[in-house]
Amino acid sequence: MTKFLQRWTVFAGLVVIWQLLGWLADDPFFPPPSKILSAAWEWWVLEPANFTEHIVPSVARLLSGWLIASLIGVSLGLLLGRSDRAMEYAGPLLVFLRSIPPPALVPVFLLLFKAGTSMQLATIVFGVVWPVLLNSVDGARSVDVTKVDTSAVFRIPRWQWVLGVVLPAASPKIFAGLRVSLSLSLVLMVISELVGTDNGIGSQLMQAQREFDYTRMWAGIVLLGVLGYGLNTALLAVERRALAWQPRSRDEQHA
């Protein structure tokens, strides 16, 4: 309980200060949190249509884009990481592609896919595949020699080598990549919704801005924050379970 208090005091304190400043300043651009929260409540909770038309599609895009990117990133990454030569050929290309800011490709994807879900997915997938891919390559390379030898001596089948040795050995690095891509997915989801669509949280943000409804705009921003926090917490919980096998420093003294 004390830990909980410790973690949230600064957060709560800042909200209180913002509230006081908001009241004092009475500035339409910076409404106090109380107004933002009530706007968020009215807009996102009391209107079920907004929930189904904006939040659900946004989250669905974000998650499917992230999952597709993760699948591509992990499988391609393990393949490249375990190949002696592949990275020498593909390395510069990957570094070049990764350096392109994904929002810059939105017009290209608009041309390729037209406005809509496929363009948005393409933006998210292209933007977030890199951290997973490069971390998977790194992880796959980190399988230590004795484990490679052990697997070779026991002549295990190929699937067991990939799923039973390379994947678990790489998993701590893969999860690090997955976390980075998940937060990137949120960013790219918003960006992909800023143009050519009238549904999704991003589009609502733009619309509120255009209508000078700054309280509603802030309500959208707060929603994005909550969403990002929730997704990250959920992924951390999954990671803790999946990597529970990792030796904890206290137990390692035996080894």
């Binding site: 004795t146 484990k147 052990t150 050995a169 096998w245 990792q246 080894a255």
Partner: peptide, 10 residues
């Protein structure tokens, strides 16, 4: 090197 030969995730 038993610590490297055994698989810590199993």
């Amino acid at each position: 090197d038993y610590s490297r030969s055994l698989f810590p995730w199993l």
